[in-house]
Amino acid sequence: MMKFWQRYALSWGWLIILTMASVAIGQYFQYATLNSVLFIAIVMLIIALKGQQIVDVFMELKHAPSLWRNIMLSYVIVVPLIITLIYI
């Protein structure tokens, strides 16, 4: 069974990896001149993944009433989705 600090440490590591990934992808697309919408969609997906970690692990909403968890998860999905749609 995972101890509490392992769960938080894993989440921290995952957030750092995702942050690095989004910056690395940004650098790659800057020079590769590939489809910018695809790039934005990938970065926004990374935002949603990071948001889910903060909401479920750091804010401890995974075991909270589903209404509040769903509201917070919706935010980290809907806002990046709207931003992606604006850039299309």
Partner: peptide, 21 residues
């Protein structure tokens, strides 16, 4: 603690939007 996590959550969106994409 939740307020502090919210501030972090906002930066998670702000940073890629303004600096990366």
């Amino acid at each position: 603690a939740c307020y502090w996590h919210m501030v972090d959550l906002l930066w998670i969106i702000l940073f890629p939007l303004i600096y990366v994409i």
